[in-house]
Structure formats: structure tokens, C-alpha cells
Amino acid sequence: MNIRKPIQIIFFIILALLISSLLLLIDHVSPIAGIAELISGGFLTHYGLVATINDTIPLLIVAVAIIIPFIAKFWNIGGQGQYIFGSIFATWIGLELAGSLPGALLITAAIIFAFIGGALWAMPPTLMKIYFGTNEIITTLMMNFIAVYFLDYMTIGPMEGSIAKITHVPSSAPIPSPDLLPHIGGVSTGIFMALAIAVIIFILLRYTNFGYELKLIGSSIDAARYAGASLRRDLLLSMVLSGGIAGIAGMIQVFGITTVLLPQVFSDITTSFGYVGIPVALVASLNPLITIISAFFFSGVLNGAYAMEISFGIPIDLVITIYGLMMFFAVIGVMINLGRIFRRSGAK
């Protein structure tokens, strides 16, 4: 990654802040105070920082998961569905085995099941791509919609918890507290798993033959074939890993944060990490280590936006609009070459 992209990203984020300032003015809030609150509420206050780190966990894992097939230009838009299926599988095994296994073993089982759930959900689009050449963007996206409603059904049907029957908010029974991921000062220990996954995938992509073949495929399919890469195997493996890791994010979210399977969390845009993970990965130029920074940054922006809502009484929709603007502009910062545009207009 050269120096151009970070500078452009910062430039465009400032641009996003300027537009946000206009929106704040319309809502009769001082832009300076608003943006100060955004920064402190997301990154500087203790409460904000804890929330930011906790949000970073699933966002980082799902973004890293998406990177793997993206390197081969296989556009897995289905991170959300894979994330949901991981959480369903993990919750199911967690409730099923509660009390019969010690916490650590149960958590391990839940991780494995989450991986399997996410990987399985990634298979239909992958196999259809391999054998029939269907467009994965469409099929992975469709699988998300099915997953969202399947989760809804599970939590009002087979997995409905006793509280849900009273509150009428769909959710599963809670995972018993001895089986939950421990917290340190409010931060879920899932953060260590997230960081480990980012590092492992970075190493996998940079140092293994598999990672190399994905890069070849991403550069030119014909060149990859010429280099002796096994396209089908690589694609399949990349999607097993991608779906599986997105699934693990679902497990960590349930066992670390929500403690119950809560469809609400999976349908709200801001917590639909399978979607949000895409711009987060792109802003990081598909580098898992840089994704740590981008996931943290955008989680901070989200929590800062919430802080603005609370401190100034700004409508939630406006603060999320600001969050969306930041993300949109950051992605633009990666995708275009400002220097070239300036040079061109300078020559006029």
C-alpha cells in the first residue's frame, strides 16, 4: 500500500465531515461540537471505547472473511447470511450442550459449529459458480435474504426462548453465563480471536501457495490456469474459509455480546456486519492487518454517532446517515486516483 491511498482516504473523510457539518447545521447543532462529540464518544470516553472495541470484533472478522475470495475477484456478498448461519449453529449447539460440557469445551464446539454453519451457507453459490458459472454476486446476495428470514423463523419457532414468549421480541433462550466469552473491563475477549484471525489470514494470503493462487486468479484466470493453479479447489477452499470465518463472527457476537440469538441485531443496517464488512475490507485495500484499523475506525465512528444522538438529541437516522457518508467517502478515497484528476484539471 503506497502513501497515496491513506492520504486520499483522510481527504475524503474530511469531505464527509464537511457534508455532515451541513446536515448538523440544518438540525441546529453546532458542527464543531457535533464532530468533537463524534470523536470523543467513539474513541476517547471509556464507555465509547469499550463499545467501539466490542463492535470491532464481528466487523473485523467478517471483513477479513470477505477478503479471502475478494482477492480472487470472487465477490462474496453473502457474508451476512454466513454470519447469521454461524450464529444459528453456534447458539443451537450451545443451548443443546449447556451444562453437559465445561465452558471451554463448549465454546470450542460452538466455534466449530459456527464455522460449519457459515461454510455450509456459502456452498450453494460457490458450487453453482463452479459447475454452472452463475454470477456469485446475485446468488450470495439472495442467500442473505433467505438467512435473515430463516433466523426470524427459528427465533419465533423451534429456538424461541421463554422470554420471547412474554416480550414478543423474537429471540432464543440465553446461553448460560458460564459458557459465555469472558470480558475484561467490559471488552469481550472475542477481540483476541478477531485479531488472531486477521493475523492468520494475513499470513495465509501472503505466505501460502493457496494465497498466491488466489492472487493469480484475481489478476487473470488464464494466467492462473497457465501457472497450474487449481481454480475449482482454490475457489471452493476460499469460500469454505470465508463462510466459516464469517460464521465464527456470528458465534462470537452471540457468546460475547448479545447472549441470545436476536434477529433484530442481524437485520439492522449498522449491525449487519456482513454488508458493512465489504467497505471496511475495501478501504483497507483487502489487507487483513490494515482491516484491523479500518474496522476499529468505523466502529468508532458508529459509536461516536450514537453519542451525538444522545448528547444533542439528533435523530438516530441522521447520525446513521453521517456514518454512511463517512464510509461512502472513505471507499471513494480508495477507488479513485486524486492525483491524476488534479493533474488533468490543472492542465486545462
Binding site: N209, Y212, S219, S220, D222, A227
Partner: peptide, 26 residues
């Protein structure tokens, strides 16, 4: 040595280092 240099003989978005081991990366 293919005739199609830019689409087959080399993965043009990758570095020359990575291109140098196209037939030895295993």
C-alpha cells in the same frame, strides 16, 4: 512461452517477483 503475454504469460497486476515463480510456486 505463450503468445498472450499480458493475459496468460504474466499476471500483470502482480509484481515481477510473484510473476517469476508462476511455474515453481509449489
Amino acid at each position: 512461452i505463450p503468445e498472450e503475454r499480458k493475459t496468460r504469460g504474466a499476471a500483470i497486476s502482480l509484481s515481477l517477483s510473484l510473476n517469476s515463480v508462476m511455474h515453481d510456486h509449489w
